[in-house]
Simulated scan of single mutants.
Amino acid sequence: MGGICEGRVVLVTGAGRGLGRAHALEFARQGARVVVNDVGVEPDGSGRSAAPAEDVAAEIRAAGGEAATATGDIAAADGAAEAVDTALRAFGRLDTLVNNAGFVRDRMLVNLSEEEWDAVLRVHLKGHFLMLRRAGAHWRAEAKAGRMPAARVVNTSSGAGLLGSVGQANYSAAKAGIIGLTLVAAAELGRYGVAVNAIAPAARTRMTERAFAERMARPGGAAFDAMDPANVSPLVVWLGSAESEGVTGRVFEAEGGRLCLMDGFRHGPSADRGARWDPADVGAAVHGLLRAAPAPEPAYGS
Rank of each mutant, 00 (worst) to 15 (best):
L19D: 08
M131V: 02
E253H: 04
R8Y: 14
G193H: 07
G79H: 14
A51G: 09
G7K: 12
L19M: 14
G45I: 13
V236L: 12
R273S: 14
V123E: 00
A295E: 15
L19A: 12
P229M: 05
G146Y: 07
L125W: 02
T156G: 08
G164T: 08
V123I: 13
D281L: 03
M216G: 02
V236W: 10
Q168L: 07
G180S: 14
I179R: 10
G92H: 07
G79V: 13
G301K: 03
A81V: 09
A213C: 13
A211R: 15
F103T: 01
A135L: 04
K144Y: 06
E297I: 03
G2Q: 11
A101P: 00
E115N: 06
G220L: 09
L132A: 02
D263S: 11
V35P: 01
M216H: 06
W238I: 11
F252L: 01
V282T: 15
M207V: 05
R273D: 12
A284K: 07
V12G: 03
R21H: 11
A70K: 00
A169Q: 09
A68V: 00
M1G: 12
T96E: 06
A280H: 14
S158Y: 13
V36A: 05
A62D: 08
P229D: 08
A50F: 08
F265M: 08
G127P: 10
G193V: 10
R122S: 05
G221A: 11
A185S: 02
G146W: 09
C5R: 03
G40E: 10
S46F: 11
D38E: 03
A137N: 05
G257R: 12
L97T: 09
G264H: 12
P52E: 10
R48I: 10
A213T: 04
L259P: 02
V251W: 00
